[in-house]
Amino acid sequence: MNASRTATLQIATPEGVAFSLPLAGPFTRAMAFSIDFVAIMAAMNVIAPILRAMQLLGGDTGMGVAILIQFVCMEGARMAMELFWRGQTLGKRVMGLRVMDESGLKLRPSQVVVRNLLRFVDMLPMFYALGGVVALFNSRSQRLGDLAAGTVVVRTIKTTPPDVAAVLAGKYNSLRDHPHLEARLRQKVGPEEAQVALNALVRREELTPEAKITLFENLANHFRELVKFPEETVHGLSDEQYVRNVVETIFRRRKGAD
């Protein structure tokens, strides 16, 4: 396991597969902390009338219990949230972050306790200066509490498999009328070129209109250079549709292929 320069944590599983976890940066972590701070303060304000009532009605005992409740809420809220929400606090949920073991495993309760115990050292001398500096120079963005507890804060990204079927299915592919030219196209297009074209289609919605026009124009011209299809076959096809047809030709299931 090692950390790459692009703020990801590389983990190799016993199954022989490596995967990476995107690490949270200091800014998002600071935002999450601020949200937690505001939430805890708001919660304290909400329960303040209850604590005051306890002090008034319960006398000395009520006052003692109120002090302890306040202490536990202030010191233990983050710890409790990370314990029960699987490494997340309210702020981390909002910012899409999660604390986890640096080897990719689930958090142990002792890790949650230790990383929160050391929080006050990270906060020295003020505004998380020490923890922030340590995290900046650490390849895993770990503050002192994370280093001691063996934890990292990662970004939780909701991912879905690309809908390649939707990209390739649907419209009629006029290139199919020329199987021998399709075979030549498959022969001439390299794997990297094919993947670039497929990615362009899968991620077309992420591109600006100008970038989309330029990209598909370049790709279509490149593929037109590789194999010349009869003019009547490609007449009226937009650059994007041309690329779509090429990709469908390359990735289409052929007899005996898998």
Binding site: F19, S20, N199
Partner: peptide, 17 residues
């Protein structure tokens, strides 16, 4: 290539791991 599919599977395998 297939960065989205790779990201999805990495996420899934990471969670499973």
């Amino acid at each position: 290539a297939e960065p989205e599919l790779k990201a999805y599977l990495e996420n899934l395998v990471g969670t499973g791991y």
